[in-house]
Amino acid sequence: MSKVPPSQDQPDDVDDQYRRASALDPSRPSEAVRRAVLAHAAQLVAKRATRDEGSMIKSTRRAVNQAWWRPAILGTLAAAALAGLMVAPRFLALRPPPAAATPSAPDTRTDERAASAPAVGPGSAAKPRASTRGADMPTDRARPKGNAPASDALAPPRAAMDAGLEARQRAPSIDSATTSIAAVPRPGAAVTPTDAPVDRAAAFRRAAEIGDLSGLKALLEKQVDIDSRDAMGRTALMLATLHGQTNEVAVLLAHGADPNAADADGTTPLQAAKAGDHPVIVTALQRYGAR
């Protein structure tokens, strides 16, 4: 064969001859092979479709979990950081001054708070009430605010929440919270219809429910009643919990939302979080004393 020079290549002749001879070749794959191949191909497509559906569900679950856990972890961390910022200055400030500790110190602090309230308190609509509020404020709620961070004004301390906020809601005429007071129109109150506290409270709850974090924070800065309730007695915290809004739950808790504010049926946010299978929210609520 090596005697044949490669240059003598004439492929067309041989190829044509080969094709003519192939056309006469009666050998064929068996029909069983053909059927097996085509059936196998169809089965594979069906299996793939099933597997893709399964993997799609898995990936969706994974995506859901990622979308859930990432903000949840971040939210928890943010809540912890905010709580730390809130609590640490208070502990530092509550320490009695070593040299100037006199029996009249609490009153002094109360006065200071009353004097500084307009600066750190709610908006301009609440300012005229600052001195009155300071005077009416129980002594145990009086705390130094001068060193508190700006966010502190948006996050009443736990004691104030427990002691005052519920009472504030149940008795809105008590001049203890600007937003609750503002919710009840009074003669001479300069509240525009679009800026009505009732609307703000509803918008606030809505923001918590749908997970509008920026809207929620904006309304918190306007001193909206953090524990205002809808017709079913649900607070913003409860609505955020029911809808699994982890970030909003964390922010609400950090800003002093009542973790035990039950709805009209008596369901607490903790019960709702457990029922809704929101473990991160459960943990966050428990950290804030939810029962």
Binding site: M1, V4, P6, Q10, P11, D13, V14, Q17
Partner: peptide, 16 residues
Amino acid sequence: LRYARTKLRELLSEYA
């Protein structure tokens, strides 16, 4: 390829 075709051409030349 060239060697293959040349050999086949030889073998099948009678049937061309």
